[in-house]
Design a protein around this nucleic acid. Sequence first.
DNA 1: CCTACCGATCGGTAGG
DNA 2: CCTACCGATCGGTAGG
Lengths: 224, 224
Amino acid sequence: MIALALPINPHSGSPTDLAPKRPRGRPRKTEGERDDGNRRQELLTAAARLFRRQGFDATSTRDIAAAVGMHSGSPFYHFKSKDALLFAVMEEGMHAAIERQARALQGDASAAAPRVQIRRLIRAHFDTLHGPGNDFVPVMLYEHRSLSARQRASLDQLQMDYESTWTPVLDALHASGHLRAPVKLSRLLILGALNWSVQWFDRKKGASLDELTDAAMALFLKEC
Amino acid sequence: MIALALPINPHSGSPTDLAPKRPRGRPRKTEGERDDGNRRQELLTAAARLFRRQGFDATSTRDIAAAVGMHSGSPFYHFKSKDALLFAVMEEGMHAAIERQARALQGDASAAAPRVQIRRLIRAHFDTLHGPGNDFVPVMLYEHRSLSARQRASLDQLQMDYESTWTPVLDALHASGHLRAPVKLSRLLILGALNWSVQWFDRKKGASLDELTDAAMALFLKEC
DNA sequence: CCTACCGATCGGTAGG
DNA sequence: CCTACCGATCGGTAGG
């Protein structure tokens, strides 16, 4: 097992350490981001939380720095711009959502009845939007407009990957008569109904995520 | 009939006009807004358009001034702050939406079948979101977060007025078996599905508003 | 990752 | 509604 050199406190190592020296100066950057382990992730988490609460424009890079105990210029050591930070938040959100979705369908991807599959998809989607600490995708839903054209195109691709999982399930439901509206518009309207819940759902009161899922199932599907 | 003195060009009137003089200096202000007829409305329309396209924070008051051919400080002659301008945009949007909704139900408010009523509500809602020049309500949906607590409370009241029209219709549909999910959650999910269309609907391509309405009806209602 | 700083932009205002 | 302007804030950077 390889020991990871966690740079928690740069002053903690003895000067005579035999461990291989980390390279001095600025680490190489990759696609507008630098890699530094913990602190980078802390910035992402804090940024996601603040972006969700206050919006992208209303959150200054100083706010984000303060939230993780850094000084005003330091976030730019980890991200080359505020835009790059926003993009990284959204990208991480989409990757997590895609993985969560895959996990929800695991095992019986094609074995389970379409009604079971759609339920799992809906429930996983609600988890992505309302699970504790899951601020990343809501930021993406809110702040899609704040991205550059290139960044947007890249995220649209991820979003298409995510949504493409729904299509065969909706096709099957349409074929069996559980869904009567056209599949493409159904997908847009259903995901819209779920996404909009970021505007009103409160985990601490009202319905639970299971009740929400039940309601969505009852609203969208015919009983045949 | 009383002649309205439209101050289109302050220099157009002869000095010997017998028409009653307009009061000199700044007009009285009311709740953070001044009344000046045309120009004020021009500012509102331009602001709605820009806020929708770029977002509230990304739109400067200079952008808005330029859009109507004013200089940078002049919007503050009509609105006491950028916030007041945003609020006025949203308020006008909600009033128009409430009127459009009432018009859609006119005549047979209680006579028509609930299925007809819900169709009209859905169609009127899509008109509010996607009708030509209807940028006011989409701004409200996007920028709800940018308001102060007081402004938000005031708009929430208008939104409750708007949504309350849906409840008796949904109640009737639930009673007749056309709607199976709980009424309150149904209202939230349905309006969410419709609202989210501001993110993807394009009047110039794809489905028409009528097709969209058909799809929504087919998605949400059981056939009994 | 900190210190010290810059240029640009922005909401808003005084006075006419 | 224009002119001229101010104070504050912000993203970002050089140098260490």
